[in-house]
Amino acid sequence: MAISKIWVFAESLEGKASNTSLELLTKARELADTVEVVAADGAAIAAQVGAYGATKVHNVSVDASKLHGSAIAGAIAEAVNAGNGPDVILTATSYTGRDVAGRLSVRVDAPVITNVVDLVEKDGALAGVEPVFGGSTDVYTKFTSGKVGIFLVRPKSFAAEESGGGAAEVAELAIPDLGATGTPVVTNRFVEEKTGPSLDDAAVVVAGGRGLGEKDKYEMIETLAKLLNAAPGASRAIVDAGWVPYSYQIGQTGKVVKPTVYIAAGISGATQHLVGMKGSKNIIAINKDPEAPIFSVADLGIVGDVHKVLPKVIEALQSR
């Protein structure tokens, strides 16, 4: 399997590359001789991505107030269509990453392999591994088009490790004429105030689901989370019901978490949810229904009413 060059689309916030970008770089290093980065904030992250193995940053000077998807995809496509592109492009399953992959796919007329959690060699080609049916089955897919391979990779699929490389060289990647596709402009940014650790970094995650019964009962999740210095999370069902914001959602749509301990309270464990938390080191599940699929992944399963069990756990911890 000869992959000579991989490009990683690296997203950044306030001049720092995202964790997922660094995870992708670490894996890319293992797969290809040359690893390079495409970024909208190339100069700022050149040293950081260099330390994770990138030798070059293709900087796309997109207007910071614009949505980036079309410009990044356009710039990459120009290089690919001119024969100056990589063999493989890795982007994270993020808001902008998906925008880039979708638009790029059309511009180079090549498909995208999505929801990838691992990249392995199969029959002499690079295959993406996608978990289906709640992670019980792995599907291996390879490209047959002979074109550039675009993979959308889930966060936390790989551990990020430094290579000790020096700062990457920065070069400019030109943006072609985007027409109407480049027009969306961000007029305002709102940050939802959240206290405590984030779902991405927390060692403990406490998540609630439909079994809580009503919106007000989510307070129990927040109380327990605070006691354990944990991040509160949620199943899709209660996000869809409007109990908590989308940023709390764990699962297929939403965040992937891999904490030391995951506590699922009143969550049945639909496929949608399991995919996002199955990688947790230890899982505690509390649910009334003994047949709930969540128990198939639980290290400690309590068949019982969350309204009875959780308050007692909270009380026991508070009394210390």
Binding site: A110, S296, V297, L300, G301
Partner: peptide, 19 residues
Amino acid sequence: GQEIVEIAQAEAREAGTII
């Protein structure tokens, strides 16, 4: 332009304690 080359059972978690 893509083809599924294999479908495999994912590694299952060890059964836990259910009470």
